[in-house]
Design a protein around this nucleic acid. Structure first.
Lengths: 334, 334
DNA sequence: CTGAAAGCGCTTACAG
DNA sequence: CTGAAAGCGCTTACAG
């Protein structure tokens, strides 16, 4: 594994041990186009015997790349982002890449600063979950302008390659589920207005309501920042309406959690007086006092699609990943 | 920022532009021991003007280091781990290091595999949150055996350098708080028996109970895997005891969440019939239907201490970080 | 303080 | 298929 002085073996060591030149050793060990021949076999045998691992930083220096992928997320304390990043790290690793993350706290200024720092670290490309449809995303604009490879995940800006969920289908299935259970006064709580994910889920909500010929009540559509606090606050307002909704569909599970907390604080029983459907099916959903019905998403698939888009020059946009509804106890029939 | 061909400027470019040798340019730009003189000033002016950023991978290759720190955590979907990792990334970045994370899912086999993969990537050192006091930690043993630099965070194995919380003090303050509110039948739910964090919190619990001359009831001390599910399940057992506890102190917030969910499912009111105190004060604690009283921890401090231990050759063990109690609505007086 | 030279560990035209 | 040579972008003894 290591030579006498405790340092890792180098290609030169392997070449010497196999009795070939460094060039031949390098070519024999090249994973993409391994060369044949007796000498090459000997090199591979020696490398395996000594557990030789190429110094990928040196190789990348020569190849003029870094093997590093920059990942930009709002925060890692959001379970969705943590799940996605874990999946990216794992998948990237299997493709011979490393992933480096920066968090933006939803601050475009911070995103620009920290994203640029990663550019200076010479990452080979970026995966962003921070895309906006309003164009107010300075870092993404900079990537485009400088032609730095990038792919979007979970959210799209309408232009760049993006690995996304079929948000509209998810919104439809959640809303239909509530309609089928007899609900008619259904509220929707979305995320930020510039997030395509929230837009799609809202579009699905509206489509299902229209399909069933149910009108959307006044004061029952809200937007937010995807936080528990927003769910708490908006629910207080919903419960104060003249016609209180009997159900709420939220664009993520954090909002749903806020809805349920606010309902409980107000003495409103879930699901008897208020049904709730979330989105993402985060691990906590199943473990709440009242287990949450939620739209489940395959984040490993999203991660794989985003890496494909980034790393395969020929990759075209992937079909949106299909979510599905996981029914639990937070929805009652009326 | 870039030369005509679109590639980043190199040290050679800066040297040429400043009319000095590459050696002189390199020394002028060396952050640790910047050299004086008129030429050096000129180099710095030119570098600033063109926004030159050294290729740190090339520098590290020459310096025989990578500037990469490996971070090993059970999972990133645990808010505590996500918070700590975010803090490590940020702090490491300000010291000129990158952080690469691997997750183990609490599986020593996976930890060994993925940790070794990071060793092969030639990281300069490791920060682990997976230490055990029972010695059954093959990857940590390997790091010690091969003298690979490492520091522990949140948990100690009793030997390696470790940045930890004063868990015992935290356990004492949580338990005293319950005792002061009149509780006597207090249960404790810890984490894994091999986790020093859990051991310390339990020791604090026992010390406070003894200090107040209160005996610990049968069946009221439990260990777990720190999960919500464990909190749910153990609470079911606590509620079935002949003498049901009036309060529970849990070694983390996930367990506390499980306790509260199980209580609500069983129709037991928190805090009227059951008081709960958690540990870590994760963001969710304040946003639950019944806001959770919890022991707050400064994770940024832990991250900084761990990096100090890893990177400063002269660093001695830091004093354990002092937690403090955040009182909310989950504790009632009796 | 300065420059010429060597070298970190690798890959890749080039000529055979 | 193979080897000798050049070079990725940097740092650091060495001699002045």
């Amino acid at each position: 594994m290591v030579s006498d002085d405790g340092r890792p073996l180098t290609l030169a060591d392997i070449a010497r041990l196999a009795g070939v030149s460094r060039s031949a050793a390098s070519r024999a060990l090249d994973a993409t186009a391994p060369v044949g021949g007796a000498k090459a076999d000997r090199v591979r045998a020696v490398a395996a015997e000594y557990g030789y691992v190429p110094n990928s930083w040196a190789a990348n220096l020569r190849r003029q790349r870094t093997g590093l992928i920059g990942v930009v997320v709002p925060r890692l304390t959001d379970t969705v982002m943590a799940t996605l990043y874990e999946a990216i790290v794992e998948d990237a690793s299997s493709r011979g890449y490393q992933a480096a993350v920066v968090t933006t706290g939803d601050d475009p200024r911070k995103e620009l600063d920290r994203g640029r720092a990663l550019v200076k670290q010479r990452v080979d490309g970026f995966i962003l979950t921070t895309a906006r449809t309003d164009g107010a995303d300075p870092f993404l604009l900079e990537l485009k302008e400088k032609s730095i490879p990038h792919a979007l995940a979970l959210r799209t800006d309408g232009g760049s390659p993006a690995a996304v969920i079929d948000d509209r289908a998810g919104g439809e299935m959640a809303t239909r589920h509530l309609l089928e259970r007899g609900h008619r006064r259904i509220a929707f709580i979305g995320g930020p207005a510039h997030a395509s994910s929230s837009q799609g889920r809202e579009a699905g909500f509206r489509a299902a309501m229209e399909e069933w010929g149910v009108s959307i009540g006044p004061g029952t559509i809200h937007h937010s920042d995807f936080s528990v606090d927003a769910g708490l606050e908006i629910t207080d307002r919903l419960l104060a309406l003249a016609e209180v909704p009997t159900a709420v569909f939220t664009a993520n599970d954090s909002l749903a959690l806020g809805v349920m907390s606010a309902a409980q604080r107000a003495g409103v029983s879930v699901p008897d007086q208020l049904s709730v459907v979330g989105f993402n099916d985060t691990p906590l959903a199943a473990r709440l006092a009242v287990p949450l019905t939620s739209v489940k998403v395959d984040f490993a698939r999203i991660a794989a699609d985003a890496l494909d888009l980034l790393l395969s020059p020929a990759a075209t946009d992937r079909p949106a990943v299909q979510p599905h509804l996981v029914e639990r106890a937070s929805v009652a029939s009326i």
